[in-house]
Structure formats: structure tokens, C-alpha cells
Computed example of a mutant assay.
Amino acid sequence: MSKLTAEDIEKRLLSLPEWDYYDDAIHAEFEFENFKDCFSAMSRIAFECEALNHHPDWSNVYNVLNISLTTHSAHGVTEKDFKLAKAIEAIVVPEDED
């Protein structure tokens, strides 16, 4: 999978307003009501990661989840990262906010 240009990444981020591009990765931070809700989202995201065979760099503290996506083998952001970002958005953004 080939690395996307900065211009391509910025265009694609227009449809993912929660995400930013820096340090050769796309990043997002999500805040939940509590730790249980955050951990539940992380569990659901983990299943998507396995299905896509693509895994984020992520961390959480209490109710906040920080995610960074990059394709290490391409040394930057690829289509694979955007596919996972969209799957993550579908999990963490409540349906009534769509």
C-alpha cells in the first residue's frame, strides 16, 4: 500500500473532522462519559482492527481515548488508515450526531 501525499490526506480529513494530520499519522481524541464507556468502545474498535488487520497506536486515561493511525510499512498514512478511521468513527460517534 502506497503512502498518501499530504494534500490527499488533508482532502480526506475533510470528511473526518475529529482527526488531524501530523508526524506522519492521523490522530483523534475521543471523550466518553466514563471509563466503562471508553473501554467498551476500545473493545469494539479492537474487533474492527483485527478484521482489517491494521492496529492503532492508542492510549486511554479514564474516559479519554487517543488514537494515532499510520501504516508503518509505508512510513506514513495510507488508504488503510482512513478505512480504519472511518470504522472507528462509526463506533464512537452516536447515531443521532450523524
Rank of each mutant, 00 (worst) to 15 (best):
S2V: 15
S2Y: 13
S2I: 14
D8L: 12
E10N: 14
K11S: 15
R12D: 10
S15T: 13
W19C: 06
W19E: 01
Y21R: 03
Y21H: 11
D23R: 12
H27E: 12
A28T: 08
E29H: 14
E31K: 14
F32G: 08
F32I: 10
E33W: 09
E33C: 09
N34R: 08
N34Y: 03
K36W: 15
C38L: 10
C38K: 05
S40M: 08
M42T: 12
S43Q: 06
R44S: 07
I45Y: 07
F47T: 08
E48V: 02
E48P: 04
C49G: 02
C49D: 00
A51Y: 00
A51W: 07
L52E: 03
N53R: 08
N53C: 03
D57I: 06
W58N: 04
N60Y: 10
Y62V: 14
N63Q: 08
V64R: 12
V64P: 10
N66V: 02
I67M: 06
S68R: 13
T70H: 04
T71M: 05
H72A: 05
S73I: 05
S73N: 04
H75N: 08
T78N: 02
T78A: 06
K80T: 09
K80I: 01
K80F: 00
F82D: 00
K83L: 12
L84I: 00
A85F: 06
K86H: 09
A87N: 08
I88L: 02
E89W: 03
I91E: 01
I91V: 07
V92E: 07
V92G: 01
P94T: 06
P94I: 02
E95Y: 11
E97T: 09
E97Y: 10
